[in-house]
Amino acid sequence: FGAKTNGSDDLKAIISAISTLVEEATFVATAEGISFRGMDPSHVALIDISWPNSAFEKYECDSDIKFGVRIDEFSKLIKRADKKDSIEISISEQNMLLVTVGKNKKYKMRLIESSATDTPLPKIPYDSKIMLSSSKFDKILGDVQVVSDYLTIHTSDSKGDFSGKGDSGEVVIDLDKDDEDIEEISSKEDSVGTYSLEYLNPVVKAVGNTAGVITCEFSSAKPLRIEFKVANIGRIHFYLAPRVES
């Protein structure tokens, strides 16, 4: 197995996103590419990444392998790469991860026993969809955060709004379809879902810079799924369980 990236931004974004959820990550490499799926310890959020072989400058994988890393250790190495540096990874016979950063920095990092079990994805229909620029979404999260720890998303036909409510007050942000940052608002059914900013904010900050447009899909009182389209990466899906009235 060997994979070489084109520049370091995508791998940095991926590792940064994963680091918001877990301390240890198990990646799966197959002939098709590299994937990761994992949930935070409380099972509130899940990240599902598929990074196709076509996104790499060089990629080879003769047989499927799993490899586990401590995300903070891996992250430190990856951060030594400049934006244009490629990052090449392979696994040594001594079961170390070989990480070549740029042309001349050759790291070896210990792998960890991977304890990964297969994580399923939530099986739900998505009634509503909002597509908007990640920078706009990041701003909206900031706007809501000043009064609330939770984001409520509401859609009705082709209208939508984001809102939040806390001890100090509340906010409603109507989405304007003429705004060039908003690409689509659609709903098969009126939907309202409330999600924790504690989980949303870090992942949007981590991937936001490399993602252009993001797609939020949800149904009333059901998980939210956000798709980040990162130039070179197949997809990053982020799932977040809702908060519901009890």
């Binding site: 949930m39 409380s42 099972h43 509130v44 959020a45 899940l46 399923p120 994805l121 939530p122 099986k123 739900i124 939770y150 409330t194 924790s196 009182a221 059901k222 998980p223 799932y239 369980a241 809702p242 908060r243 519901v244 009235e245 009890s246």
Partner: peptide, 11 residues
């Protein structure tokens, strides 16, 4: 009162 659900509730 709001309660946090888990993703496992939807598997």
């Amino acid at each position: 009162l709001m309660r946090q659900k888990t993703l496992s509730d939807f598997f």
